[in-house]
Structure formats: structure tokens, C-alpha cells
Simulated scan of single mutants.
Amino acid sequence: MPKVMGSLATHREQVRERVFAALREQLYHRGFETVTLSGIAAAAGVGRTALYNHFPDRQALLVAFVEAEAARYVDDLDAALATADGPRERLAVFARMQLRRLAEFHLPPGQALAGALDPQAYRRIAAHADPIGDRLATILADGAADGSMAADAPAVLAAMVSAALSGRRIVEVPPAELDSTVEAAVSAVLRMVAPSN
């Protein structure tokens, strides 16, 4: 790649990272409903025209942000799961990471997000849950196969675990209590999937 093209690609990536950092901060403190492209441009230190060249509207910005964050998260999740020993430990790692992620990000819940975005944008964002759900299904199937987890109704069990790990109230605690709260929730999830005697 010629030097000019490489520099341009590097510059574009740096702009995207600054914009995503500004969006992350605003989502955390104020929520998506308050996000404006002009506010993101100002916070990221980029011109509004430059921002519009990357993202024509705030929905496109949110979709691109979620796609980038989801790809990074799945890579981190896979790396963490690879170090875990057995399905129960992998489920504990999965649950811990899901809850930590929930504590860090403040996107509106599914129904509210669906109302804030057009259907196509919402479908693109929702599709990024698929690889995460696939990891959970594999963990539960492996646990059922080795007898360490319940084997009946795997789809129901996966839905129950997903629901348990998406409750924002679990992680809306003072920072000093987050570690113990997450560990209590992880223990509850492990009990939920235990095989019946």
C-alpha cells in the first residue's frame, strides 16, 4: 500500500476511535437518546463534516460502534474461554464477562432500542448477539454432555441464562459492591444450570 493510502487509512481509524470513545462516554453518562452528531464531533475533536463523511446519522454511528465493540468483545470472550477448564468454569467466565460488560455499557434495553432505531439498524445491532449466544449454547451443550449441567430443554436454559445476565439492576450497585455482586450472580447462574438429582 502506498504511504499516502496507509496514512489515510490510519487517519480514518484514529478518527473512528476518537468518535467511538466520545460516543462510549456519552452513552455511559447520558444515554443514546441525548446523543447528537454535533455533540459527538465536538467531544471527539473532529469537524462535523468529517464526522458526516464517516457516519451520515446517529443510527449509522451507533450501528458501527456496536459492530466494532461486539467484534472486540467476542475476541476477548474467546480468549478468556480458551483458558477456562471445563464447561462450568467456562460458564462462570462467560457470566462474569457478560455482567462486567453490562456494567460498562449503557445502551437502551432491546425494546427501547428497537423504538429508537429504524428496523434495519436494529436488526444489524441485534445480529451481534448471535455469536455470543452461540458461545453460551456451546458451553451448555458441553456441560450437558459431561453431566455437569442440566441436559433437558437446552434452548430454554440458554434463554434463562441470557435473561439472568441481562438484568441491569444486578450491576447497578455502588462500585465497591460490584465484584461481590457479580460473583453472587455467577454463583446463581451456576446453580441454575446444575443437573437435577
Rank of each mutant, 00 (worst) to 15 (best):
Y52N: 14
R58P: 11
E33R: 15
G115S: 08
R100Q: 10
Y73C: 00
D75E: 09
A80E: 02
D78W: 03
A79S: 12
P119H: 03
P56L: 02
L91G: 04
V46A: 05
P56A: 04
D76V: 03
L102Y: 13
A68V: 08
Y73H: 11
L77C: 06
A70M: 03
E69K: 14
A116V: 01
G110M: 10
R58K: 15
P109R: 08
A41F: 13
G110L: 05
Q111S: 12
R96V: 00
A114R: 07
A116Q: 08
A82F: 06
L51K: 12
R90V: 02
L77G: 05
L27K: 07
L61P: 11
L61W: 12
A60E: 13
R100N: 10
I40S: 06
V74K: 05
S38E: 10
L99Y: 11
V74T: 09
A112G: 08
A79D: 08
G45S: 12
R101V: 03
D78H: 03
A79H: 14
A103G: 03
H54I: 14
L51H: 11
L113S: 04
Y28Q: 14
A41H: 12
R30F: 11
L117G: 08
A70Y: 01
L113T: 10
E69R: 15
A60L: 10
A114V: 00
D76F: 02
A44W: 07
E69V: 14
L51T: 09
R58S: 09
A121H: 02
H54E: 15
G115F: 09
A42S: 09
A82L: 10
D76A: 12
A43V: 11
L37C: 06
A92C: 09
A92Q: 07
L77Y: 09
V35P: 07
L81H: 14
L107A: 11
L91A: 06
A121E: 00
F65C: 10
D85T: 11
T83N: 00
L117N: 08
T49C: 01
Y52F: 14
L117T: 07
F105Y: 14
A82S: 15
L91F: 07
V63H: 01
H106G: 12
A41G: 12
P109N: 06
R96F: 02
F55L: 12
A114D: 04
Y73G: 03
D76S: 10
M97H: 01
E33H: 15
F94K: 03
A92N: 09
A79E: 12
F55D: 07
A70L: 01
A95R: 00
T49F: 02
Q59M: 13
Q111N: 07
V66C: 09
T34K: 11
A71M: 01
H29N: 01
D85Y: 00
G31E: 00
A71L: 04
R88C: 05
R48I: 11
P109K: 05
R48W: 03
R58A: 10
N53E: 15
G47H: 06
E89W: 02
V74M: 05
G115L: 10
R72S: 07
A84E: 02
F105T: 15
E69S: 15
E67Y: 00
Q120V: 14
L91Y: 05
D85I: 05
